[in-house]
């Protein structure tokens, strides 16, 4: 089996899975019915993407591996998502900033993955990109609405941005696996995407009347499996059934 490709798929899938989980925590608790529906919809899309990616990863791994054994039976150290996506739903401003910072990255990444030398990845990316185009429209619109809405909403958004922006650098810290995927034409050149990303993000945030924080990038290694303390709690919820009732069909 191609171990590196398998790990690369985990990296792609875990971002969507952990963010999908955070959004699913909000279901029924949104600030309005419309936003509740929209965020649940995004969560559904993300879990749909996770299923496509993990089904492919399970096929690569073979034996008894399934999408669920990948999703539910790994330790925290075996997860490869970026730390941004674990950050809690502190308030709606944090939810929207976290979403936009990810969506803007994911859109660029998927656009590149549509051209992947790996046909499966290219097909999954093409399908996911349609959804992510909608997600980024939603989160960017809400950044503008809340950033330029009232002074209270502007302040909350600025606080959320100050907290979350430094985590966005992790997307571009190209690790060994990502470098190899790039060299094989499977994954994008993250260094190239970085400039495009920050230029897009800066434009949007300035339209939203928000200031780019000058705090340095957080030194995080989520992609290598070293996470925040939040992930353990996420997995306690997420894996509860599979751990308490192992080897059962649901």
């Amino acid at each position: 089996m191609n171990d590196k490709l398998y790990k690369y798929l985990l990296m792609l899938g875990d971002n969507s899975m952990i963010l999908g989980h955070r959004l699913s925590e909000l279901c029924g608790h949104g600030p309005s019915l419309e936003t509740d529906i929209a965020l649940t919809n995004i969560s559904l899309d993300l879990f749909g993407q996770v299923r496509n990616i993990f089904q492919y990863a399970a096929k690569l791994k073979g034996a008894n591996t399934t999408e669920d054994s990948i999703a539910f039976l790994r330790t925290a150290r075996q997860h490869h998502n970026c730390i941004l996506l674990e950050q809690p739903n502190t308030d709606f401003a944090h939810v929207i900033i976290r979403q936009y910072l990810f969506d803007a990255f994911q859109k660029l990444q998927l656009e590149n993955l549509c051209e992947s030398a790996d046909d499966q990845i290219a097909a999954i990316a093409a399908k996911s990109l349609k959804e992510t185009n909608y997600h980024v429209r939603f989160s960017a619109e809400w950044c503008k609405r809340l950033g330029a809405g009232t002074s209270e909403s502007n302040q909350k958004m600025q606080e959320a941005l100050n907290h979350l922006y430094p985590f966005s650098f992790e997307f571009f810290e190209q690790n060994e696996i990502e470098s190899e995927m790039y060299s094989k034409g499977i994954g994008p050149d993250l260094n190239r995407l970085k400039d495009i990303y920050f230029s897009q993000v800066k434009t949007l945030l300035s339209t939203a009347e928000l200031n780019i924080p000058d705090s340095p990038a957080r030194h995080t290694k989520g992609k290598s499996g070293i996470h925040s303390e939040y992930l353990g709690y996420i997995l306690s919820d997420f894996q509860y059934m599979q751990r308490v009732y192992p080897n059962m069909q649901w």
Binding site: P31, R145, K156
Partner: peptide, 16 residues
């Protein structure tokens, strides 16, 4: 709680 916590969001959307 969802209604009260969401008040600033709805106000901002109206203002915008």
């Amino acid at each position: 709680n969802a209604w009260e916590e969401g008040a600033w969001v709805r106000d901002a959307a109206m203002a915008y």
